[in-house]
């Protein structure tokens, strides 16, 4: 596979369409176009594009979206494993 796509079927994202109130917040805050509105309900249309940033879950008013959010950084995971904590980033980042 070529291009900037990450692993298949790896993420913890779930959407309970039954409790979704159709506000569209998840669609608005997702930086990877994972969600789309269909029939006044959010729908996951590109699950593998999810990077587990957690913006959708944090802003979902009906708690229909869940995701175990975290930083997809190998060094953070290593540092976390050494310290026995959750992944913890210690690098300096850049722009934005």
């Amino acid at each position: 596979m070529f291009g900037l796509r990450y692993l298949r079927n790896a993420v913890t994202l779930t959407l309970n369409e039954a409790t979704c109130n159709g506000c569209g917040m998840c669609v608005s805050v997702c930086p990877h176009g994972v969600f789309r509105m269909e029939n006044r309900k959010a729908k996951v249309v590109d699950r593998d594009a999810c990077m587990e940033c957690g913006a959708c879950a944090r802003n979902c008013p009906s708690e229909a979206v869940t995701v175990k959010a975290g930083t997809g950084c190998a060094m953070a995971i290593i540092i976390g494993a050494i310290r026995g904590t959750e992944p913890s980033c210690g690098c300096s980042c850049d722009s934005d």
Binding site: V11, M51, K68, T71, A74, M75
Partner: peptide, 20 residues
């Protein structure tokens, strides 16, 4: 390059764990 996952805009923590 595995470490570069931390600099990208599209890698998930579950995915990074899995490949590690």
């Amino acid at each position: 390059l595995m470490n570069f996952t931390g600099c990208t805009t599209f890698t998930s923590v579950s995915g990074v764990r899995r490949e590690m």
